[in-house]
């Protein structure tokens, strides 16, 4: 007992760092969020329930959650592919492409929204060709998914990439020398190693998409029941002085996001135990 205690205390600074961590988080974000939740509790349960289950609100959940789910799935597939290509293959302009992946982080969401709608509206560079096939992107649910995919893109790439880089090729070689074909190696060696990173990237892309506002408002039609995302509805409620309604819907979003992250962290912990 005393030995483990001593060993654990070799590294100093726990009190200082955890103290600062909690203080800063507390001031910037935990206390305000707590106060916000407290504010919601000043509503009666019936008022809260009716605010968060209005038909228009429920329709917006469907779009926000569904759209984020689709967007995160697209990012999971293509993000992993991009990470794989960037780590494993050589091709001209690779460094440029690698740097470019961060663009959705760097470009302000409002600019992204304006750029995307300029491209994909039926007058845009891409939209006019899609229009020939009768595909409308701007002002439809497809546009919402497009914007959400765009902003979530770096998350999967940037979480998978370092893990892939650190992955020892010896393992793959060993697997191959034991007679496994490439697909088997990918399934049994590479995939399990990537699994926690994939989950994290997916969760982050999903969570980020769920709350996105700036880029979506420009490209979605903002039509209640059809192309109205939940964050927009929150703004609309607040602008009609319905702070309680806005706070109630905001609370639902908060709780959903937090549950998501908690589940994913649990999964990651489980995965690292199983494969680590």
């Amino acid at each position: 007992m005393s030995i483990t205690l001593v060993k654990r205390r070799v590294i100093p600074g726990f009190g200082l760092t955890i103290g600062f961590t909690l203080l800063y988080m507390g001031l910037v974000f935990l206390i305000p969020v707590g106060a916000f939740l407290l504010y919601t509790t000043t509503m009666s349960w019936e008022a809260f329930w009716s605010a968060v289950t209005q038909r228009q609100v429920v329709a917006s959940y469907k779009l926000s959650f569904g759209g984020s789910l689709i967007a995160a799935s697209i990012n999971l597939v293509f993000g992993t592919l991009v990470a794989w290509v960037l780590v494993r293959y050589r091709f001209p302009g690779k460094r440029f492409v690698d740097a470019l992946v961060d663009l959705p982080f760097a470009l302000p969401t409002a600019v992204a929204g304006i750029a995307l709608v300029t491209l994909y509206a039926s007058t845009g560079w891409v939209g006019q060709y899609l229009d020939i096939f009768g595909i409308r992107v701007a002002y439809t649910q497809l546009g919402v998914v497009l914007a959400l995919t765009y902003i979530g893109l770096p998350f999967v790439v940037r979480t998978v990439q370092p893990v892939l880089e650190d992955l020892e090729t010896e393992l793959e070689e060993a697997s191959a020398s034991l007679g496994a074909d490439r697909l088997t190696t990918i399934r049994h060696v590479i995939f399990p190693a990537l699994f926690p990173a994939l989950l994290t990237g997916y969760a982050l892309a999903f969570a980020r998409a769920l709350g996105e506002y700036g880029s979506v408002v420009f490209i979605s039609g903002n039509l209640p029941f059809r192309t109205e995302i939940t964050p927009l509805l929150i703004v609309a409620k607040a602008e009609q002085y319905d702070y309680h309604g806005a706070a109630a819907i905001g609370t639902v979003m908060l709780v959903a996001a937090f549950l998501m992250l908690l589940i994913i962290n649990g999964l990651q912990w489980w995965a690292s135990r199983r494969h680590g």
Binding site: S122, Y139, N222, L232
Partner: peptide, 21 residues
């Protein structure tokens, strides 16, 4: 017959004039 509900008058003008919707 309304395909888009912009949040402000200026957004709607942009939709009609710039996006030709």
């Amino acid at each position: 017959n309304v395909p888009v509900l912009d949040s402000g008058a200026r957004g709607a003008t942009n939709t009609f004039v710039q996006r030709r919707l």
